[in-house]
Structures are given as C-alpha cells and as structure tokens.
Simulated scan of single mutants.
Amino acid sequence: MNADLTEEEMRRALFGEAQQEVQVSAPPVQEPAPEVVFTKPIATPAAKKKTAKAFTPRLRVTLRVTLRVTLRVGNEFEGKMIELVHDADTLSSLLAEQEAVKEARKKYKYVEVVSVKSM
C-alpha cells in the first residue's frame, strides 16, 4: 500500500468519484439596506385575560404514631433490673427502639429491649 497519497486521492478512495462542483469566483453584490426606523407600538387598552392555572390536587396527611418501647435496665450485670417505658413519636419501630436505648444508656449501663408496641 502506498503511504504517500495526497488528500484528494484519499477522498476519492473513501468516497468515490464525486461530481466536480462549479465554483463561481464572482464577488456577491451587496445592495444598500433600506433605512429602518423603529417605533414603539401603541398599547391598546385591551382586557387581558389571565390564563387559568391547572388544578393540581394536593393532599396533606398528618400521622402521629406513638410507639411504646419497654426496656429492662440496670447498672449491675445479672443484678436487679428495672422496667423503663419510653414513648417515641415516629413511624419506625427501629428508630423508636434506637432512641429509647440511647436515652436509657445515659443513666444505665445494661439495657435490654423487651417490646415495641404501637399505641
């Protein structure tokens, strides 16, 4: 294969023989543009109608779920345990349990979850 091809030969090899375009070298004649005067349009006092907005139904749901978490807590290992009840306003029982354990750990060392019930 010959590596010394010209650009024109490469174009013919890729795209085939193309019809030669007739090139006109005459400069385009520019005609003088007519003078344009801009004026403000006169505002007519027409009654403008406001477009009606599309009705979008919206619902607001307010839920208040209180979960009651019962814990057994104490400061001695295998010692006396006290039952502690924690009320959490959340929909998630996992979050309610974590919140109750976090609060109980502030005062007690050993915490055991007994139950999580919805009220």
Rank of each mutant, 00 (worst) to 15 (best):
E7D: 00
T44L: 08
F15E: 04
K49Y: 06
F38R: 03
K102F: 14
R64T: 15
R64H: 12
H86W: 13
N75L: 02
P27Q: 01
K107S: 00
K53T: 03
L71M: 02
K109V: 03
L95D: 15
V22A: 07
V114E: 11
Y108G: 00
Q19H: 07
E17T: 05
R60N: 03
F77S: 07
P34N: 03
A54E: 09
R12W: 02
H86A: 06
V114H: 10
K102L: 14
T51C: 09
R68Y: 15
G74M: 00
G74A: 02
E7C: 02
A47M: 14
A26Q: 13
A46N: 15
E35N: 07
S93M: 04
F55D: 12
F55M: 06
E31S: 09
E9M: 01
V85E: 13
R105Y: 05
K102A: 15
A46P: 12
F38P: 10
K102N: 14
A13M: 03
P57A: 05
Y108L: 01
V24F: 06
R12V: 04
R12Q: 09
K53A: 07
Y110C: 03
Q30M: 12
L94K: 12
N75F: 02
T66D: 06
V24Y: 10
E31V: 13
V73D: 03
R11Y: 00
I82V: 12
L95I: 05
E78T: 08
I42G: 00
L14F: 00
R11L: 12
L63Y: 08
T90Y: 00
F38T: 11
P28V: 05
A88C: 08
Q30V: 13
E112G: 02
Q30G: 07
P32L: 09
K53F: 04
T62W: 11
F15V: 03
R12T: 00
T66V: 15
V37Y: 13
E78C: 10
V111D: 04
A43H: 04
A26G: 09
F77L: 09
P27Y: 03
V65P: 11
A104C: 08
V111F: 05
S93A: 09
L67H: 13
A104Y: 04
V37D: 11
K80E: 11
A43E: 10
A100N: 06
V101L: 12
A13Q: 02
S25K: 14
R58G: 06
Q98C: 13
E35M: 12
T70A: 05
A33F: 06
Q98E: 15
P41N: 08
A52I: 01
I42V: 08
V22N: 14
E78P: 04
T6L: 01
E97P: 10
V65K: 15
P41Y: 04
K107W: 06
S115H: 10
A26C: 10
L91T: 14
K49F: 13
M10E: 00
E99Y: 12
F38E: 11
V37C: 01
K80M: 07
A26W: 12
I42E: 04
E112K: 07
K48T: 13
T44E: 15
L59K: 09
V113F: 07
T62I: 13
E103W: 14
R64V: 14
E99R: 11
F77V: 02
R11C: 02
P27N: 10
F38Q: 11
V73M: 00
K107C: 02
D4Q: 03
I42L: 04
N75M: 01
E21N: 09
K49H: 11
